[in-house]
Simulated assay, not measured.
Amino acid sequence: MTVLNANPVVYEVSKKININDIKYNINEGDETREPIDAEEIFELIRTINDPEHPLTLEQLNVIRLESIHVEDSNNYVSVTFFPTIPHCSMATLIGLCIRVRLLRSLPSRFKIDIFVAEGTHQSDAAVNKQLNDKERVAAALENSHLLKVVNQCLIEKE
C-alpha cells in the first residue's frame, strides 16, 4: 500500500479518559439520564487509529473538540473531521470509523452526521454524501473486509 502522507504532522494529545468510564443510560424513557456533550463525544473518537499511520485521529489533528456539535435535547450529534491532505484516499474510511464508534457507543436515540470539513478535501461533498447515506453505510458494513479494517481502527492501543 502506498502511503500518500508519509510524514504527517503529529500533535500532542490530551489526557486519556477510559471510555468505559463514560456511562450512558440506555433506558430511553428514563428522565434521570445525564446529557451527552461534545467532550464525551471527543473522548469516544479521539483514540480511533488512523488507517495509514500508527497514530490516532487526535494525534493527527483529524478530529478536534471544537468541530463536534451536540444537541442532547434534540438527540443530535455532528462531527466534522479534517483530513491531513486534500486528496486523502482514507477520508471515507475515517468517517466510517467515527460513525461506527458512535453508533456502538451512543444510545440509539441519536441521529449522527459525519462531515469532512468544507474545503479540506478535493471531494468533500461526495465523501459527505456517502458518509451520511444510511444505505451506503449499511452496505459498507456488510463488506467483511471493510468491517475488519474498521474494527482494527477502533481497537484502542495502550
Rank of each mutant, 00 (worst) to 15 (best):
V62M: 15
F82H: 12
L102T: 01
M90E: 01
N27G: 01
S108H: 09
I41N: 07
T32G: 01
F42G: 04
L65G: 07
R101E: 14
P83G: 08
P54Y: 00
L106W: 05
I98Y: 01
C88H: 03
L106T: 03
E40N: 04
L106C: 09
T47H: 01
P86Q: 04
V79W: 09
D30R: 10
R104C: 03
T92W: 07
R64H: 11
S78P: 08
R64E: 13
N49P: 02
N61A: 13
S73C: 02
R64N: 15
T47D: 03
L93D: 00
P83L: 07
C88Y: 03
R46N: 02
F42T: 04
G95R: 09
L103Q: 02
I48G: 12
N25H: 01
I63D: 02
I48A: 09
H69E: 05
I68D: 07
Q59K: 06
L55G: 03
I85C: 13
L102G: 01
S67P: 02
L57G: 07
E71L: 13
F82N: 08
R99Q: 06
I98T: 04
R99E: 03
T32W: 07
R46D: 04
N74S: 12
D50L: 11
N49Q: 15
S67E: 10
I36D: 06
V62N: 11
Q59V: 04
N25F: 00
R101C: 13
L57K: 11
V62Y: 05
T80S: 14
L96D: 00
I41H: 03
H53V: 13
E43A: 10
V79C: 09
E71D: 09
I45W: 07
T84M: 11
L96V: 01
F82S: 03
S78R: 15
P54F: 00
I48M: 10
P35Y: 10
N27L: 02
C88P: 09
I63T: 13
S67G: 04
R99G: 05
E58P: 10
Q59A: 14
P83W: 07
E52A: 05
R99V: 02
T47S: 07
Y76C: 08
R101L: 12
A91L: 00
I41T: 06
R99K: 14
M90F: 01
I36R: 03
I26R: 08
I45C: 12
R33I: 05
P86N: 09
I68S: 02
E28I: 14
V100H: 14
P51K: 13
E39I: 07
L65N: 04
R99Y: 08
I85H: 11
E58A: 15
D37P: 06
E43P: 06
R33C: 06
R104A: 04
P51D: 14
I68T: 02
D72A: 04
V100K: 12
N61Y: 08
P54N: 09
E28W: 14
E39Y: 12
P51M: 13
L55Q: 11
D50F: 04
T84N: 15
S78M: 14
L55F: 12
S89V: 08
P35F: 13
R101H: 08
T84V: 14
S73N: 07
R104I: 00
N27A: 02
L55I: 05
